[in-house]
């Protein structure tokens, strides 16, 4: 589903965000990407969503080599990726329904089909009763769930989440994670960037640890891994 082959990224200002990353995430897999801010998590996600291009190496998504994608084709690639953001990125001048319907409108669905799918997605995140509200009337957790509904409404095979629980309390975070698990159970691949270590410790999924633009640990969910306390897991980072 996601493949990084010798990927490096150097920003125009000289900052090196990624150094020779090799990574494979299979279809239907759910993985966490963690590390300190500036370790390169966001850059990884930006390369997948074509907001940035790698300086070297190749990123392959759904079997498509992104290096070969022309700017004109970027929208089509993005439609197959559901993206969830820390700051939700909702349109505040439109209703919850319209926000969630946006990907379907872009894809050109029939309006009855849009109604069905949007309500199904809102039902899934427990916000069916709020479809007529505007995002500004919702709490942070609810806004995030609207963002999630928007990301899944088009049934993308891959979900990317950038610090989806960044601004939420532990209880709401756990709720969001349960949603992600449900999506994963029906076969969606997920890559979730998060530095919420206590949350990661509770989740038993593959965890990729980044530091200074390198992948320093690729910890599959083994029993030993589970026993490792999060602080120890990132001990090296904390010292630097």
């Amino acid at each position: 589903m996601i493949e990084f082959a010798h990927v490096s990224k150097r920003y125009p200002n000289g900052q090196i965000a990624l150094r020779n990353i090799d990574l494979q995430i299979g279809a239907g897999e759910m993985a966490f990407l963690t590390g300190h801010s500036g370790a390169g998590k966001s850059t990884m996600l930006k390369l997948i969503s074509l907001m940035e291009r790698p300086t070297a190496g190749q990123v392959i998504i759904n079997g498509k080599n992104l290096n070969r994608i022309k700017p004109r084709k970027i929208p089509a690639i993005r439609r197959d990726i559901g993206m969830i953001f820390q700051d939700h990125r909702l349109l505040f001048d439109r209703s919850v329904f319209d926000n969630v319907a946006l990907p379907l409108m872009i894809a050109g669905y029939d309006h009855r089909e849009i109604g069905r799918r949007v309500r199904a997605a809102l039902d899934k995140v427990g916000l069916l009763s709020k479809e007529k509200s505007t995002p500004i009337m919702l709490s942070g957790g609810e806004q995030q769930r609207v963002g999630i509904a928007r990301a899944v409404v088009n049934k993308p095979p891959l979900l990317l989440a950038d610090e989806p629980t960044g601004n939420l309390d532990p209880e709401l975070s756990a709720e969001i994670m349960r949603l992600f698990e449900q999506f994963n159970q029906v076969g969606v691949s997920l890559l979730i960037a998060s530095h919420d270590l206590s949350l990661l410790a509770k989740m038993h999924y593959r965890t990729l640890v980044m530091k200074d633009g390198q992948l320093i640990q690729d910890r599959s969910d083994t029993p030993q891994g589970l026993d490792l306390p999060p602080a120890q897991l990132l001990g090296a980072d904390n010292e630097s």
């Binding site: 197959d80 049934k155 076969g187």
Partner: peptide, 12 residues
């Protein structure tokens, strides 16, 4: 609509 219809994990 059941969940696998909602997020069927195939290419859109």
């Amino acid at each position: 609509m059941n969940p696998d219809q909602l997020t069927g994990a195939r290419l859109t």
